[in-house]
C-alpha cells in the first residue's frame, strides 16, 4: 500500500489506490508504523499521484499524522495530488493546515529550504 524512501531526514511515502473508510484504519496503522520506526525524521512527504480517490475518512488520517509529526517538531506535507485528491483537499481546507506541493521534487527542495532557515 505504501512505498517508503528515506532522503536524509525526509521520509517520502508513495501511496496508491483509494483511501476511504474501507482502508482508513489500515492506512492509519501503516503510516503510524512508518513514522514510529523513523524517530529522527522531521519531514514526511506523502506522494499522492497514484491515489485515485480520497474522501474525508482518508483526509482525516492525514490530519492525524500531521498532528503526530507536529508533536515531534516536524511536519507532514502532501506532494503531487491528482485532480480528485486536490479537489477534496481544497474543499476541506487542507492547504491551510499542511503544505501541498505539485511534485515530490518541489516538496523535497522546499522542505530542505525550510530546514536551512530553521537552523539559522
Amino acid at each position: 500500500m505504501i512505498r517508503c524512501t528515506l532522503y536524509g531526514k525526509s521520509l517520502v511515502l508513495e501511496v496508491a489506490g483509494e483511501l476511504d473508510l474501507n482502508n482508513a484504519e489500515e492506512f492509519r496503522t501503516a503510516l503510524d508504523s512508518l513514522i514510529d520506526s523513523h524517530p529522527d525524521v522531521r519531514q514526511v512527504v506523502l506522494c499522492m499521484d497514484q491515489v485515485t480517490f480520497i474522501d474525508s475518512s482518508g483526509i482525516g488520517v492525514l490530519f492525524g499524522r500531521q498532528r503526530r509529526m507536529a508533536s515531534r517538531g516536524g511536519a507532514l506535507s502532501i506532494a503531487s495530488p491528482g485532480p480528485q485528491a486536490r479537489r477534496a483537499l481544497d474543499l476541506l481546507g487542507v492547504p491551510s493546515i499542511m503544505r501541498v506541493y505539485d511534485s515530490r521534487e518541489q516538496a523535497l527542495a522546499a522542505e530542505a529550504e525550510v530546514r536551512k532557515c530553521t537552523r539559522k
Partner: peptide, 10 residues
C-alpha cells in the same frame, strides 16, 4: 474522535 465531522459540509 477518529473522524473529521466534515461529511455534511462536503
Amino acid at each position: 474522535s477518529q473522524r473529521l465531522g466534515m461529511g455534511f459540509t462536503l
